[in-house]
Amino acid sequence: MRADPTDYKLVSPGSLQGVLSLLSAEPKRWLPIAGGTDVMVLYSAGKLPNRNLVNLWNVPELRQLEVFPDRIRIGATCTYSSLRNHAIVSREFPLLATAASWTGGIANQNRGTLGGNIANASPAADSLPALLVYDAELTLVSLRGERRVPYREFHTGYKKTVLAPDELIRDISLPRRFSGYVTYTRKVGARNAQAISKVCLAALGRIANGVIQDVHLALGSVAPIPLRLTETEQLLIAKKIHSSLFGTVRRTLIQEIRPIDDIRSTARYRTAVAGNLVVEFLGKLTAESARS
C-alpha cells in the first residue's frame, strides 16, 4: 500500500441527512465512499487526492430496492450482488443483471454499488450502457432539495457529470416497459472475467411484421462518456433488417463514437468491434423475432 493512512480522514454519519449536511457545509471537501471498489484502488496506489471521505455504506435510505407497478427504484448503494440476485431485475432487466455479473469478482460485487459506478463516471463502466438503454432516471438529493435527471443527460464529459458538489445520487429508477423486447449485451474485454471492457454494447429492440418498431443502443469504452447511439437508432427505426443495411449502420455508428488508443486497445479495433456487436445484435433481433 502506497498511501499513508494518517493523511486520510473518514467520517460515518449513518444517515442521509447527516451526509447531506456535511456535503452542504463543505461541498468540495468530502468524497463520498460506498463500497470503495474504485476509491480504495486509488488509495492503495497512493493516488487518491481527496483526503476526507464520508461513508455511505451504513446509510439505510440508500440501500433499498423498491418495486412499483410501473418502475423499480434502486437505491444508490445497492450492490452488484443484490442486483444479480434480485428476481425482478434478473427477469425484466437482464442487461443490468448481466452487467452486474461482469463487474470484478464476487468480492467486488459484494461491495461495489450501482450509484458508485454512475458517480465514478468511467466510460468503461460495465453497468452504464444497460442503464442508458433502459431509459434510467436518477434522483439527486441535497439539503437544497431533490431533482430528477434522465440518466442520458447525467454525463457531460470525461469524468464530468451534472452532480453538484453538495449532491448525492439517491436512487436509479427504471421503467418496467421492456418485457416484449429482444435484449443483447456483450462485453469485449481482454479476458472473460476481471477485465475492463474494450467495448461494451447493451441493446434492446422490438420488431413487428419484420419492421423495427423501437431500438435502444448504448456503448461503453468508445467515447469520453457511456454513449447512447441516437443517430444509429434513428436510422434503424421502421427499417427491415437486411445485410444491405449494415454498411450504413456501421458508417452512422462511426460518426457517433469517439474511441481512443490507450493502454487497453486501439481506436481502430474498438470501432470495428462496436460495429460488429451492433450487427450481431441485429442478427439476434431478427432471429428471436422470427421465432416468437
Binding site: 481482454a190 479476458r191 472473460n192 472475467a193 476481471q194 477485465a195 475492463i196 493502454i263 487497453r264
Partner: peptide
C-alpha cells in the same frame, strides 16, 4: 513497463 498492474497486464483467468 507501463502496464505494471494486474488490471492492465492481462493473465488468463480460469474463465479463459
Amino acid at each position: 513497463m507501463v502496464n505494471n498492474q494486474m488490471t492492465n497486464y492481462i493473465m488468463p483467468t480460469s474463465a479463459d
